[in-house]
């Protein structure tokens, strides 16, 4: 009983406390680099598209708002032919970023993406792909993967021995 009254009194006293609201948009809040806002697709340090169209982000997405189609360049480098995120469905949970094996998909601290038409919330690859590495500077998936792509032959990845000479019978 007393605690109820005290609660009421305590809450009443808040009438004289300072307000914590940040008056957005006049005032801006600080959002950390790892804040989960608008999603981008980044590039690897060599400037190539990082996304290898593995579909893992799409599978991880709890609201299924990522769709893409894989394709390959003539040298066997896989990339998404198109990549679509329906931001009107996205809940910015960041699971896609967690799932991505190449650091391609990243959430950014930009949250200002309201639109008058819901249709405008559908982002295609050209709206997503940026010209930088985003939060993860050094990584290049193709340097550790075993497949060869243009400019990197078999055995040229990190920690790879040169291709086996099949004509040798030495063990």
């Amino acid at each position: 009983m007393f605690s109820i009254l005290r609660t009421i009194w305590d809450v009443f006293l808040h009438a004289f406390a300072k307000r914590v609201t940040i008056q957005y948009p006049e005032q801006k809040a600080y959002l950390a680099a790892r804040y989960r806002g608008r999603i981008i697709l980044s590039r690897d340090p060599d400037g190539g598209e990082r996304c290898v169209a593995c579909y893992l982000c799409a599978a991880a997405c709890p609201v299924d708002c990522i769709a893409l189609q894989a394709t390959e360049d003539p040298n066997g480098r896989r990339y998404p032919e198109w990549f679509r995120i329906n931001f009107s469905r996205c809940i910015f949970c960041g699971l896609c970023e967690d799932a991505c094996p190449t650091y391609a998909i990243q959430l950014t601290p930009d949250t200002e993406m309201s639109e008058y038409r819901r249709q405008d919330m559908v982002y295609e690859k050209e709206n997503l792909l940026i010209d930088g590495v985003g939060k993860y500077p050094g990584y290049n998936f193709w340097r550790v993967a075993g497949v060869n792509i243009g400019g990197k032959d078999k055995g040229e990845s990190e920690r790879e021995a040169p291709p086996v000479d099949l004509h040798s019978l030495l063990p």
């Binding site: 997405c61 708002c65 990522i66 679509r84 329906n86 009107s88 819901r118 249709q119 559908v122």
Partner: peptide, 16 residues
Amino acid sequence: HRFSGRTSIDAAIEVS
């Protein structure tokens, strides 16, 4: 049950 992209596949044509 892991089918992905169902809120995105047709979104380019019609977002609903």
